[in-house]
Computed example of a mutant assay.
Amino acid sequence: MKKVILVALLACFTFSVFLIGNTSKSGGIVESANEDPWEQVENLNYLFWTADEKIENDVKKLQLDLSLTGKQMEKLKELGLQEGYLFSEGRRCKDDAAKDDAVTFNQRVDETFANIDKEVRVLLGEKYNDFCKWIKTWWENEKMYRLNWLAEKEKKSKEEIGITSTDDRELVYATQYNGYTNLEIALPDKYVKFANLGWWDDIPDSIEPYYSNPPYTANVYYETTNKSVLNVLVREVGPYNEDDNYWDSATASNPRRMFTDLALGEPEAEAAKLRGYNDGKDQFGRVVNQPAGVDLTEEVAAQLRLAPQQNDWVWVRYSDLP
């Protein structure tokens, strides 16, 4: 039976902040980028551009623990924004011709992190090694915290709406992108996009009946500001995957096409980033840099009172999706 998922992403949930732990004061600088654990994931963008209260407190702790200046913190934030820009287009798949293959995309990721790493080395000097250790410890704690947080929120939502309700809720991370129009979103199911755009020749005959009743929209709610954007059209595919209709179960009338061992409502990109699922890669073998389950245009984000390029956990209701 098809599920209508209330997918959510929420900021500022007031759990206690996981302690990062004491940082080393060795002062040595790591010479090889391969020895630098922080560059293996898109941590600066996630750390500096997520409007989550816990993560914002983590940023303050970073500055305090390493005695970083305001100028150094601003530069790290700027580098985080560069990460987001460089990977944003590659993680969405507008068409086969524009889509990076896995090798090209992953090479671009490696090159980007290598360049950012060089800038961080110069920026932090003798504090660079301590920074690497801090980031590695923080990320391990953040993953543990976030998975527990997601589980607690799922449990609470089921208690609120009832275990037997078909109105399921999940937490999903929202990022931003440049859309075809100002008011739209992206979801990782290419056939939703194709149906909304009338590209029927691109939908297989065996699948087309499930996508025969467009337009398909979603409602987005940001609890931090108590703002909503209703009936937002899905006009793009992504983030990352094209065949991850995660709002459908493996046994639904329109079954989840890939990653059927994941829980109903859990995007593959989220599992890849937070749990290392599929070796931390999307369906094409590309490295997943953000745990995103929905992309918002800047206008949708602005109506929710998110700043440009700012990411966060928001509630999303997937109304009548196939």
Rank of each mutant, 00 (worst) to 15 (best):
1 M>A: 11
3 K>M: 08
8 A>H: 11
9 L>F: 12
12 C>S: 13
13 F>I: 14
13 F>Q: 15
14 T>A: 04
16 S>R: 15
17 V>S: 10
20 I>N: 13
20 I>S: 12
22 N>G: 09
29 I>C: 05
31 E>P: 00
44 L>G: 00
47 L>I: 05
48 F>L: 01
54 K>W: 09
56 E>D: 08
57 N>V: 08
69 T>Q: 07
70 G>V: 11
72 Q>N: 06
76 L>P: 02
80 G>A: 04
89 E>A: 11
93 C>A: 13
95 D>Y: 11
96 D>V: 13
98 A>Q: 14
100 D>E: 11
104 T>F: 04
110 D>W: 07
117 D>R: 14
118 K>G: 00
137 T>H: 15
140 E>H: 15
142 E>P: 01
144 M>N: 15
149 W>D: 08
158 K>E: 10
160 E>M: 04
160 E>R: 02
165 S>P: 13
167 D>R: 15
168 D>V: 11
177 Y>K: 04
184 E>G: 00
185 I>C: 02
185 I>K: 01
190 K>G: 00
197 L>D: 02
200 W>P: 00
203 I>T: 03
206 S>C: 07
208 E>R: 14
209 P>F: 04
213 N>P: 00
217 T>K: 12
222 Y>E: 10
224 T>D: 15
225 T>W: 04
225 T>G: 05
227 K>W: 00
242 E>Q: 14
247 W>D: 02
252 A>Q: 08
263 A>D: 12
270 E>R: 05
274 L>C: 06
279 D>L: 10
281 K>T: 11
282 D>N: 01
285 G>T: 07
296 L>Y: 07
298 E>L: 08
298 E>N: 09
302 A>F: 05
308 P>C: 06
309 Q>M: 14
309 Q>S: 12
313 W>G: 06
